[in-house]
Each structure stands twice: as structure tokens, then as C-alpha cells.
């Protein structure tokens, strides 16, 4: 049917690879496969453990259902019990922690952000700020929380400190990137009026990054709210403690209720945060 003379053409073709050559590609794939296989081997997960657990799932769901929010109906009236007030009280604490930690954390992070902007800070200061960012990003806020809880016996205050300490790694890092992108000519214009460094930052820098700053603050609050719900697991305040206790004392129906409330609050927080950020930008 075809008149194209094709027999004289090569009958082999292999896909070009993004690696240097096919052997490098195979080596990389092999290395990744071996690495994953080694991980699986090193984790030593036994089949019995898996089997045992799958049997437990049924039990756990049974024990969690129905969740007990501490609300009951008696004589046509809603009666709230001890469990209900516990959830409300601890959830308010969680919310308060997230708000205080956001405000303090942002205040602490602002100077770090300026110091971490290549175009605004002198070299040595820049490196110090980058080190602060790297360390606060790498050490999980829960680790900071547990250190404060056991080191000083703080409750919710330890949680707030933990969240504050984790803020520069997020807030200062992202804000510094925006600071590096600002329009230099406007800064020069303000410098030309004889303004000092603080004046330059207040009148030249802040107006350019203010919407972004507000957006990041709201975003950080969302993250802090999520984190506040679990800090209690290590004793650093908030509803996490209630969840932990419920599970440890086999009150699974109460635990399920707390869990559902946490999910609801986190989802609402995310919706509020993304709505507010949309309004700012």
C-alpha cells in the first residue's frame, strides 16, 4: 500500500535521556530502587504486625463510633456535659495560642526578613539572618515545644514560644524573597531626600511589600492554627492534650469527637485564610 521506501532506514531507536547517557540513567534508577529497597528492609515491618493492625482497625472504628461530643438530649433540651466544656475551653486556648503566636512571631520575623534580603543588608548580617532561617526551618516546632515544656514547665506559653521560634523560617524567608524583588529606583528617590536607613525602609520598602506581608501573616496564622491543635500532644497547650489523653485512657468516642472538631476548625481556618488572602491581593 505504501510507496515509501523504508527498508533502508534504521530499525532501531532509543529515547534520548536527560541523563548523560543510558548507563547513567540506569544507574540512577537502580540507586533509587536500591535505596528504597534498603529502607523497606531496614524498617523491618513484619507481616504479623500488619495483620494484627488490620484486625484492630475494626475495633478502633467500633470504639470511636458514635463520637461523644458531650452533648445529650434530655427532656427535649440540649444538655452539655464536662466533655463538651473541655472541648470548648481547649479549643479557645488553641485559637488564642495561634493568634498570639502569629502577632509575636511576625514582629520577631520582620527584622530577620530585612536582614535576610540581599539588597538591604550588609553581607555578615545577611549570613546571620540566613542561618537563623535555616535553623528555625529545620527544627520542627514540636521539638522546640517539648524542650520548653520539660525544660521550664511552661504550658500554653511553651506552645506560643515554639510557634514563634518557627515563624522566621517561613515568614522571613518568603518576605526576604519579596524584599529582594522590590523596585530599587524608588528607594534611591527616597535616599535622595536625605532619609536615613529607617526612613528608607518605612517609606520605600514597606509600601511595596505591605500586601504581601499581610498575606503572609494570614497564611502563617493558618499554619499556626494547625500546629496549635497538636502542640498539646507534647504538653505545650491547646486541644492536642485533650486528644492525647482521650486516646491514652481508651476514651475513643471522646477522642473521635475531639478529632472531628480539630478537622472542622482546621478546615474553617483554611477557608478563612484563603478568602482573606484573596481579598488582600
Amino acid at each position: 500500500m505504501s510507496t515509501l521506501e523504508y527498508e533502508e532506514y534504521s530499525s532501531e531507536w532509543t529515547r534520548p535521556t536527560v541523563f548523560y547517557n543510558r548507563w547513567v540513567k540506569r544507574l540512577v534508577y537502580l540507586a533509587v530502587a536500591v535505596f528504597i529497597a534498603w529502607n523497606v528492609w531496614a524498617a523491618r515491618i513484619s507481616a504479623e504486625r500488619l495483620q494484627y493492625g488490620i484486625g484492630q482497625v475494626d475495633f478502633l472504628f467500633g470504639a470511636m463510633w458514635p463520637p461523644d461530643f458531650g452533648i445529650s438530649v434530655s427532656g427535649g433540651e440540649l444538655v452539655t456535659g464536662r466533655r463538651f466544656s473541655r472541648i470548648v475551653e481547649k479549643m479557645l486556648e488553641t485559637l488564642a495560642m495561634s493568634i498570639v503566636a502569629t502577632v509575636v512571631g511576625v514582629l520577631v520575623s520582620l527584622p530577620v526578613a530585612v536582614m535576610a534580603a540581599e539588597n538591604l543588608a550588609p553581607r555578615p548580617v545577611y549570613y546571620v539572618a540566613r542561618a537563623i532561617i535555616t535553623v528555625t526551618r529545620s527544627i520542627h516546632e514540636l521539638i522546640v515545644g517539648i524542650v520548653f515544656v520539660i525544660g521550664f514547665g511552661f504550658g500554653a506559653f511553651a506552645g506560643v514560644l515554639a510557634l514563634v521560634s518557627a515563624t522566621p523560617g517561613f515568614f522571613a524567608k518568603l518576605l526576604a524573597e519579596d524584599l529582594e524583588d522590590i523596585d530599587q529606583s524608588r528607594l534611591d528617590a527616597i535616599r535622595a531626600t536625605g532619609a536615613g536607613p529607617l526612613g528608607v525602609i518605612l517609606y520605600g520598602v514597606v509600601p511595596q511589600v505591605l500586601p504581601r506581608m499581610i498575606g503572609l501573616t494570614i497564611y502563617r496564622w493558618d499554619i499556626n492554627l494547625r500546629a496549635s491543635t497538636i502542640l498539646g500532644i507534647v504538653g505545650a497547650g491547646g486541644i492536642g492534650a485533650t486528644l492525647n489523653t482521650a486516646f491514652n485512657t481508651y476514651e475513643y468516642d471522646f477522642g473521635a469527637a475531639v478529632l472531628l472538631v480539630i478537622i472542622a476548625v482546621v478546615v474553617v481556618g483554611e477557608v478563612v485564610s484563603s478568602w482573606a488572602r484573596g481579598r488582600v491581593q
Partner: peptide, 24 residues
């Protein structure tokens, strides 16, 4: 939504109840 709004530590709490303590 469900997976994202539950922190890994909470997942951890649940899975420790189911599978016991450890890497799994």
C-alpha cells in the same frame, strides 16, 4: 481534604493504637 487537615502526629496517634508503637 481529610488527609491534609489531619496532622501527621494525629495520624501517628491513631496508627500507634492500631499497629502498636514503632516505625510502621
Amino acid at each position: 481534604a481529610g488527609s491534609r487537615s489531619i496532622h501527621s502526629l494525629i495520624w501517628g496517634l491513631v496508627f500507634v493504637i492500631v499497629f502498636g508503637t514503632g516505625v510502621l
